[in-house]
Amino acid sequence: MLVEVSSVSKSFGNVRALVNVSLRVPPSRIVCLVGPNGAGKTTLLRIIMGLLKPDGGTVRVFGRAEWSTELRSRAYYLPQEAGLPKGLTGREFLSFLTKIYGRGSVERGAEFSNLGKDLDRRVDEYSTGMKRRLLVAAGLMLEPELMVLDEPTAGVDVVHALYVREAVTSFAREKGAGIIYTSHNMLEVQYVCDEAIVMHQGAVVEAGAPDEIIAKYKVKNLEEVFVRVVRG
């Protein structure tokens, strides 16, 4: 198991961000977290990545309770508001990451990003979508065993979002990587995810394959499930 989260809770002052959340991510599987803003998705991802400590419960990544440099080299995290180092070109950023991770090919990253000549422009000049594409491509280039992608297609246009989804899906299938994916686009979740975990007010309210959840709620798509869950 790549990630095992058991009964994790987290509060910020009086706000309960996570309540008794559990999930498991095996290899070759894409697990999606969905839910309205403030549902606790990002908090959960930050706890998984060791950036926040839970108040209760346990988190094991690669079977270990603590992150180490060696474990970090096997994972890649794309935060929701991730930026890029100012002043660098897209290609220089990819090159920087290959040095930090000690593996990966810049050309492969360039191919994944689909940025063409823009790759030699400074990242300061990139649009939000271009930045997200570069950051996802960087992750794919490094071929990690675990990818944690917080809204990877936010701000990406329809065509490129489709491209990102396909690249991530085939990466999981071909390389056997486990992926945790968050999105507000329910069609995307239906398309990408093997398992969807619906969160609301810090708790998991539904979990399972998107088709199973849709069948359970007797609705047409995941969007309707989402609306029903949020409206109670």
Binding site: R72, S73, Y77, L78, P79, E81, A82, G83, L97, Y101
Partner: peptide, 9 residues
């Protein structure tokens, strides 16, 4: 980029 940096090896 600080958050990303902390998750690099």
């Amino acid at each position: 980029i600080a958050e990303s940096l902390f998750t690099y090896p």
